[in-house]
Design a binder for these strands. Structure first.
Length: 376
RNA sequence: GGGGAGAUACCAAAGUGGCCAACUGGGGCAGACUGUAACUCUGCUGGCGUACGCCUUCGUAGGUUCGAAUCCUGCUCUCCCCA
């Protein structure tokens, strides 16, 4: 994987770049749809590529390891062959599950012992094993195994947590160096910067990851309970230190506004479940604001789902029908909403890139942020 | 014609003298969701008020009682069984 910085918009840290992988190119800034179990929920690979114009999607080490299991994925020839998506794939390491499955896991220096959320069985994830699993999955971009520190962590906890993530990173790197890709395409490993909401910790963590000269760097442990103000402040601290010539990935973020704020602060890559999960729950993000499709006001609105939308669903279906589907619990409603939201997110980052290249990002972004928060 | 059962809020359905403006489910209305244990979760759902509260409700008209959705009587309607 390689990264080429194309342009930094004047008067801002917002950047446009190009990532090249063995499965295709990625124009940054980019949003990466989340496909935890190997599929972006409700979305066909064809629509992902042709309609939504996704350039890279996520998978999750923890989920794929539990089900279908490594043997099946290996037999398939890796996740790309298994799920029919032949574009770039990034896998999260399970670090987020260390956070979200807090009740059913135990952390130690060795790693994280999980109880499967599926059948309760016990599994130990170590930095080494997580590298091996991601080799088998065959992600173009693998993530280091980290502890995603909760946003409200005390300083001492955050410090210890960050330090363990650093030691785990060292082990990840060693294992990564000791192993090779299984399917003929190259794989990169991104370290993750932790440190909760403490600038001093974030600084240490950001400087620490530089020693590995990785293909890219991630910022984790944000949008996990801290304030947006803190989140933006941490991005600024870290991006001050991360190298210019490598992509920066802000993990798990976020709302359309979060993404624009992140781009403005020099982030290149984003992922978030929000467009799909909120879509399944009836919420639409649009250029003009947020729509809750369950609201009665759409019941007799027969205009297109989103007249400004870039997806075919935006023009093929009307709002009243979409509301009917959502209210009725019809799965097509969840699909339409997810497809719209993803297409919107991809439009948003593509447009941001255009504005960066034209040096008009700042004004455009300010205007968009106003619009995006409106409740329609 | 004879016998029996029942009528509770938008629907279904608990409650069978005070803790009942009334359990619960559905429906309705709104909110949440950020590296997915999530097509999930939360709140409201008689009227007015932010709220303590006040007012009007359990087919209908009366009655008993300090007090009734709950007990008694008349009426109206519904369902079931037998002829």
């Amino acid at each position: 994987m390689q990264f080429e910085l194309k342009h930094t918009a004047t008067g801002t840290k917002a950047r446009a770049g190009l990532i090249t992988t063995d499965h295709g190119n990625i124009e940054t800034p980019i949003f990466m749809p989340v496909g935890t179990a190997g599929s972006v929920k409700g979305i066909h690979a064809r629509d992902l590529k042709e309609d939504i114009k996704a350039q890279i999607i996520l998978g999750n080490t923890y989920h794929l390891y539990l089900r279908p299991g490594l043997s099946i994925i290996e037999q398939a020839g890796g996740l790309h062959r298994f799920n029919g998506w032949n574009g770039p794939i990034l896998t999260d390491s399970g670090g987020y599950q260390v956070f979200s499955l807090g009740d059913i896991r135990k952390l130690s220096e060795a790693g994280a012992k999980f109880q499967s959320h599926i059948d309760g069985s016990s599994h130990l994830f170590t930095p080494e094993s997580v590298m091996d699993v991601q080799r088998i999955i065959g992600a173009d971009i693998m993530m280091a195994f980290d502890e995603c520190t909760p946003g409200d962590a005390e300083f001492e906890y955050a410090r210890k947590s960050m330090e363990m993530t650093q030691r785990w990173l060292d082990r990840c790197m060693n294992q990564f160096e000791k192993t090779v890709p299984k399917y003929g395409h190259s794989q990169s490993l991104f370290p993750i910067v932790q440190g909760a909401v403490y600038p001093a910790l974030r600084e240490i963590a950001a400087r620490n990851v530089l020693q590995y000269n990785s293909d890219g760097y991630a910022i984790g442990g944000l949008s996990v309970g801290e304030s947006e103000k803190d989140m933006y402040a941490m991005i600024e601290v870290v991006n001050e230190i991360l190298p210019e010539n490598k992509p920066r990935y802000l993990m798990g973020v976020g709302t359309p506004v979060n993404i624009l704020e992140g781009i403005e602060r020099g982030i290149d890559m984003f992922d978030c479940v929000m467009p799909t999960r909120n879509g399944r729950n009836g919420m639409l993000f649009t250029k003009k604001g947020i729509m809750n499709m369950r609201n009665k006001k759409w019941a007799d609105d027969f205009s297109p789902v989103d007249p400004d939308g870039t997806s075919f669903v935006d023009h093929h279906y009307n709002r009243a029908f979409l509301r009917h589907l959502v209210i009725s619990g019809e799965m097509l409603g969840a699909q339409i909403a997810s497809q719209h939201n993803l297409a919107f997110y991809l439009w948003l980052v593509k447009e941001a890139r255009k504005q960066i290249l034209a040096n008009t990002f700042t004004g455009w972004k300010a205007e968009m942020v106003q619009q995006l928060c409106v409740r329609l």
